[in-house]
Design a protein around this nucleic acid. Structure first.
Lengths: 207, 207, 207, 207
DNA sequence: CATGAATGAGTGTTCATTCAT
DNA sequence: AATGAATGAACACTCATTCAT
């Protein structure tokens, strides 16, 4: 589908991808301008539509590209033989922080992408989000040693509470970074805060 | 400021408010079209701008209108003398469900509004959100009896985990309703699920 | 035609006239907004169109009103028995300066009005300008003692040169006042400058 | 800056330029409609803004284009070695008449442009006018032999009177052409009239 | 007499997309 | 493959004018 694009020399590919990521991350799907993208990428209007037939397809290509890139790296790094839930989720949080440092624009783009709900992409994108969520949940919780958890509560619900906590924590941090301009995320501090939640959860949810 | 509008006969007011809520909720601030709103409300272009001088002012009016409407009803129903945290938050969850059933579009609009970050409204709206958050957090946690919580963990963090859980639960439910068209939220089921989380939290977080 | 308006209590008449003069003088015919006029005059939209059926008619009424007002006062003050051309034109210049001080907005409006050429009013207004010019030229030069002028040149042309000089002088002064904001016309200086031109003309054009 | 436009085939360039000149000359900056321009030029709305990013830039481009065109031709024809003031100004008047015959719309546009004072263009355009005036005055009066003028009067004022006379003469002629529809300027007659003024000035202002 | 709600065509400008070259 | 000229519908917003009250 995007084979034409993918057989371009990679320097040009990168210019286009970076320009598009930047524009979509900054302005959101609807307000992103293909004009800005081509200007920034240094290519012509026509070429963009030659490779990606529409803004929509460009967006989906971009999302898949970015998502796969970080997911690949994530799964390369994560140790799925670790059976203790907290060690596993701690890994996940750390790897995510690393990725955020290594590819800040890409991660920002992905996070912004998840928030889009323009009518143009809504239906298709909502389905994709759903899929990804279930796939990831399947993998990330696979092989976990559930025997350490208290027996008097529904373990699945506890796992949810824990995941949600780290998602919300990360959201809040990103939100702060956006509202307070110039605010840099202090990864050390976030890491320590996460650690405190880990301890609480171990105390409360383990036997 | 919007006295002109508010002295209209309420049938027309409603038509305009509903049309605007629908459009903003569906498309977000930037992509919402005043053209669609007037078409849907059955009024002329000029009239909308006769009442509200700009799209921005219309949006803020709408947000305040909706927010006050549900907040009023919320605070009328909530029992702030209840000092037990879980009973209090259970109340809140139930009332929110009621409101969602009673005013589904309005609640959707409010939730969507909170996610907007169009440059046109960002600064003004971020301030408003900040205010509302602190006001509400102050009220909702006021007078809570914290002595029932375990002494070996940071209570503030536990409160956060609990709030986040119910927020995420609600988000997921809404997301499901969006993805599966025609899917109706089964409040009975959601209510029961919430109840299960309550029990877990009481078991794990109370002394 | 405007009898309805003219039988209003004069305080309201004035408010309307002043508001309209201000708006037209500031923005020109096309860009002047009847909305601004009614807001400034403190009357309703409908009333303005009740008295003057259209923007165009309001403009023409206003022009006639202002023109007659200053013309009346001008002709009341000018001494048409003075037969020396330079004394007569000196008078005219002085009276015009007085009027400019006494009714600055009205004079500004008239001057601006003469510059309008919106297609809406062009044809009708051009005719009016032509008429006024010839009427005034007739009166102002009537009874002048032409015997003092050199015999070797066409006196009519000399009169034109002199009138044009004072018109252009006045234009330039007004232009300066507009370009340099806050610049106040120094009538004393203008008067002295005019005097210098008088002397030149007497030296060169009189026998 | 306007290189995109200038590399168009000249037939289309002309259509656009002529349409824009016509509209601006007729209606003035504020009331000129880009809709009318594109309709008249037979191009799409988008294209106009593809070449000129805004109405303002179109106007300034147009002004520079027209001004340079006539100024170039003017300075090509004028003989700046002629040191006699009247011979020099006679040249100027004749060349201007030629240009008016050759490019009537362009001259009209330039004259109208000088009268604009829309707030959108005022500041930028006033500066430009100021510049052009001083540049031209510098060139046109450069090397003039002032020794022929009477010693008993201020020569600078006399030069002004003379310039003003020809400006006003030209204005009146244009005004007549506008009021009487179908009236063609009889250049022969204007030329003769100008000649009469020259003679008067020579008689009165030279030693 | 007086109001101001209501109209709808108008404004300059941007947009994703197409297509001849 | 690559260009960028060209399109026209869409955008938020303003306007003079009308008319029911």
């Amino acid at each position: 589908m995007f084979s034409k694009f993918l057989s371009l020399d990679s320097e040009k590919q990168d210019r286009i991808i970076n320009a598009a990521i930047k524009e979509f991350a900054q302005k959101g799907y609807d307000s992103a301008s293909t004009n800005e993208i081509v200007k920034d990428a240094g290519i012509s209007k026509g070429l963009l539509f030659h490779y990606f037939q529409s803004k929509k397809q460009l967006f989906f290509f971009l999302f898949d590209y970015c998502y796969n890139l970080v997911a690949d790296e994530f799964y390369k790094k994560v140790d799925l033989t670790e059976r203790d839930f907290f060690k596993r989720i701690r890994q996940a949080v750390h790897i995510k922080m690393d990725l955020q440092t290594k590819y800040p624009e890409i991660l920002t783009f992905i996070q912004e992408a998840f928030r889009q709900d323009s009518p143009d992409i809504k239906d298709e994108f909502d389905k994709k989000k759903q899929e990804l969520n279930s796939v990831n949940a399947g993998i990330i919780y696979d092989g976990i040693d559930l025997s350490k958890f208290r027996d008097d509560v529904d373990v699945q619900k506890i796992l949810k509470v824990i995941s949600w906590t780290f998602e919300k924590m990360s959201d809040e941090e990103l939100q702060k970074a956006k509202v307070v301009p110039g605010h840099k995320i202090d990864y050390e501090k976030v890491f320590l805060e996460a650690e405190e939640y880990f301890e609480i959860f171990i105390k409360c949810f383990y036997k």
